[in-house]
């Protein structure tokens, strides 16, 4: 030990704690993945390797229920993420490219408000609001509620990207006889693409992820994947849930990896702009 070079960046014990952290993060997921291939109907006893529960997910008794929930989840996430992304692009243009206007500083707080209000409170407030105005809970109420909390998640990477693009490009476009709308469509928007994609994917995942707000505002007959899974595990974890979890886990990881590489690609293609807000 005495010969070890003094490294001021290194503190004893930090490395083991980092490994502990990774262990805590991955052990539960890995165990569930492994047990999803268990042939046994009991979740405790390991029997043998099989794809039985994956077959059950797609063709079993509960398959239609989970299929419907998956379709709901995906269509809701698509609609919510698309709307939130459009609203976020407009908001970012207002905040970063439109100079001063009345209520600008309040706008920043407002956009981030969904992040500050606890999810359960948003859920309660939205439920009360829809019930008070006599809106029947159902598909539409879920979409509306999801748009609200997706906005800040779409806004963050989009605004970060826009901040990294100097306004000299739009000025150059205007100088070359482009109208403001052309400058936006032909120059700013293409340069924003990685940020917009990141924002969209982030909003999409956040929408897919939501349980508590959906659970409050959904109507009686409608389920999303999280609410369906929650309903199923109330009576205890069953092997088919582990198979669904594994599938969902793989999809999430693929999505995140995609978003990550899209962000990186943007960075490489365009050294003038920064992508610090991408992904996280």
């Amino acid at each position: 030990m005495a010969s070890k070079k003094v490294d001021l960046r290194r503190f004893p014990g930090f490395l083991p704690l980092t490994y502990l952290c990774l262990f805590l993060l991955y052990a539960p997921l890995v165990i569930v993945m492994i047990y999803s291939f268990n042939d046994s109907a009991s979740i405790t006893r390991w029997d043998s390797l099989s794809l039985r529960w994956y077959h059950d997910v797609f063709f079993g008794v509960e398959a239609p229920k989970f299929r419907a929930a998956t379709i709901n989840s995906i269509t809701i996430a698509l609609m919510a993420a698309t709307s939130a992304t459009i609203v976020a692009i407009m908001a970012a243009t207002a905040m970063l490219r439109s100079g001063r206007f009345r209520g600008k500083s309040a706008s920043f707080a407002l956009i981030n408000l969904p992040l500050m209000v606890p999810e359960i409170v948003t859920a309660v407030a939205t439920l009360i609001f829809f019930s008070a105005i006599g809106f029947t809970a159902g598909y539409l109420t879920i979409v509306l509620a999801h748009i609200v909390f997706c906005i800040p998640f779409a806004y963050l990477p989009i605004a970060a990207r826009m901040q990294g693009i100097e306004d000299v490009y739009e000025q150059a476009a205007q100088d070359l006889y482009a109208t403001r709308f052309q400058a936006f469509r032909l120059v700013l928007l293409p340069l924003m693409t990685p940020g917009i994609l990141s924002g969209f994917l982030l909003a999409f995942i956040i929408s897919l992820d939501d349980f508590i707000i959906t659970n409050f505002v959904k109507g009686a007959g409608i389920e999303t994947l999280p609410t369906a899974i929650y309903g199923a595990v109330r009576q205890g974890i069953k092997p088919n849930i582990m198979a669904i979890s594994t599938l969902l886990l793989v999809v999430s990881v693929v999505f995140v990896a995609l978003s990550y590489f899209v962000g990186r690609m943007g960075e490489k293609n365009n050294d003038e702009t920064s992508t610090k807000g991408d992904l996280i």
């Binding site: 609203v87 908001a91 207002a94 490219r97 439109s98 706008s107 403001r180 400058a183």
Partner: peptide, 15 residues
Amino acid sequence: STYAGLGIPLILPAW
């Protein structure tokens, strides 16, 4: 700013 004067209509949907 490039979009001076458009701030309020652009922020309106978020509001």
